[in-house]
């Protein structure tokens, strides 16, 4: 059997494309439950703030605590979900710790812009913090896959529309469409 250099180049290109597709799907499947969790956090915290005005100050801390705990537990379960006798490679462990550090930097960035911009009401704070994440999804989507980009785009559009045109009902909008777009996005990633 003879293989030409052109055939070899095409074969290696096919191998790269197939590997990239698998990594993309694995990223989607790992990300899906986290999108659903944070969608539920947005839905619950915003809805509680809208309907139960007195409980608003407790809604976000409780929902965020749930989100961090649930996301951490899911992350641990995902890292354990390896074939029997196998463990995550050093590269995969590095990826996990880098993701954790990235989340920490994003949180620090949000604290900084909140301190600098000093938003005056809950709608501004909500919008300013919430809008960071869809743009991160879009940036990540450029590298990881178009579905992630699309989720970011739809969520960012929902936040901007709600902030400028539905100010009176912003929290309800954010709960239903901000949280809803994340939940739907998570289910969509799962089906990829």
């Amino acid at each position: 059997m003879n293989v030409t250099r052109e055939e070899a180049a095409k074969a290696l290109d096919d191998i790269d494309k197939a590997s990239d597709r698998v990594f993309q799907l694995q990223g989607y499947h790992h990300g899906a439950p986290h999108f659903i969790i944070w969608g539920l956090v947005w839905l619950a915290a915003n809805s509680a703030s809208y309907f139960l005005t007195d409980a608003a100050r407790f809604a976000w801390p409780i929902a965020l605590a749930f989100g961090f705990v649930a996301s951490t537990v899911v992350g641990i379960l995902q890292s354990r979900k390896w074939p029997k006798g196998k463990t995550a490679s050093a590269a995969e462990r590095r990826f996990g710790s880098r993701m954790g550090m990235t989340a920490g930097i994003v949180m620090l960035f949000i604290v900084c812009i909140t301190l600098i911009a000093q938003p005056t009401d809950s709608r501004e704070i909500n919008a300013m913090i919430s809008i960071v994440f869809p743009f991160l999804y879009m940036a990540g989507g450029i590298w990881a896959g178009w579905r992630l980009f699309a989720i970011g785009l739809v969520t960012a559009a929902a936040i901007i529309f709600g902030y400028f045109w539905l100010a009176e009902h912003f929290e309800l909008w954010m709960g239903l469409f901000g949280g809803g777009s994340l939940i739907a996005g998570g289910i969509w990633l799962r089906t990829a």
Partner: peptide, 22 residues
Amino acid sequence: EIIHQSTRLRIAATLNALPSGE
């Protein structure tokens, strides 16, 4: 010769990208 065929090569590349045994 078994792996080099285009579809089998792509099957192999896809399975190779999974963790061992998955």
